[in-house]
C-alpha cells in the first residue's frame, strides 16, 4: 500500500513536471527574421540575434505617457528579479511601433532618462514596413489615432495591443501577456519552466 502511494506520488511529480513547460507554440520565427535598428543605429536581426536565449519582448512607442511606461516598468522588474535569481539566459527587447518618431536618438534619450539597464535589454526601431511585418506575425496591432501638431511637431497617439511576449530559445512565441498588468510571478515562473 505504501509502495503504491510512493509510486503514485512519483508519477504525479513526473506528470506535473513534464507538463510544466508544455506551452503551446503561438508562432514560430524559424524561417523569419526582421532587420531592425537598435538605439546605437546598428542593424540587428530580430529575433535570431538572440537564438538560444529566452526573449521577453514588449511593444511600445515613446510618446505613450501611460500604458507603455507601465509595460517597460514591468519589464524592468522582471529583469531585476531574474538577475536576483542569477538567470542569465534571458534577453529583453522593447520594439517601437512608431519608428517614424522613435529614431535611435529618441530611443537613447528614452533609455537615458528612465535609466534602463541595457546589459541584456535592447530597444528597437527600424523601417516601418519591417516593423509592420513583425507586428503582423506577432498579432500586435497599433493603429494611429489622434494626430496633432504641437509647435510644428507631429504628435501621434495609437490604439494598440498591450503586449509582452515570451519567446523560447528556438525562436518560438510561447506565451503572451498584457504588458501593463502582467503578473510578474507568473512570467518568472514560466521563464524558469522553459
Amino acid at each position: 500500500m505504501a509502495a503504491t502511494k510512493k509510486i503514485s506520488a512519483v508519477l504525479l511529480f513526473v506528470l506535473v513536471n513534464a507538463c510544466g513547460n508544455n506551452f503551446p507554440v503561438i508562432h514560430d520565427f524559424k524561417n523569419e527574421d526582421f532587420t531592425l535598428l537598435n538605439a546605437d543605429s546598428a542593424e540587428m536581426n530580430f529575433p535570431s540575434v538572440f537564438k538560444g536565449k529566452i526573449i521577453v519582448a514588449g511593444f511600445i512607442f515613446t510618446n505613450c505617457p501611460d500604458i507603455c511606461p507601465l509595460t517597460t516598468n514591468n519589464m524592468r522588474i522582471i529583469q531585476e528579479k531574474l538577475k536576483e535569481l542569477k538567470m542569465g539566459n534571458v534577453e529583453f527587447a522593447a520594439i517601437s511601433f512608431d519608428p517614424k518618431h522613435d529614431t535611435p536618438k529618441v530611443l537613447r534619450d528614452y533609455i537615458r532618462i528612465r535609466k534602463f539597464d541595457t546589459d541584456n535589454w535592447t530597444f528597437f526601431t527600424g523601417n516601418q514596413q519591417v516593423i509592420d511585418s513583425l507586428l503582423k506575425v506577432s498579432e500586435v496591432f497599433a493603429i494611429p489615432s489622434d494626430t496633432s501638431f504641437v509647435a510644428g511637431e507631429e504628435k501621434v497617439t495609437f490604439i494598440h495591443t498591450d503586449r509582452i511576449m515570451l519567446i523560447d530559445g528556438d525562436l518560438r512565441i510561447r506565451k503572451n501577456y498584457p504588458g501593463s498588468t502582467i503578473n510578474i510571478d507568473e512570467i518568472i515562473d514560466d521563464i524558469q519552466k522553459l
Binding site: P65, D66, I67, F141, S145, S148, V150, T157, I159, T161
Partner: peptide
Amino acid sequence: AELIQIHETIKAPNGMMQMKE
C-alpha cells in the same frame, strides 16, 4: 510642456488600449 491636456486611458476591444482627451 508646450501643451497640457486632461486625458483618460481606456480599454478598447481585443486587449487594445487607447487614450482620449
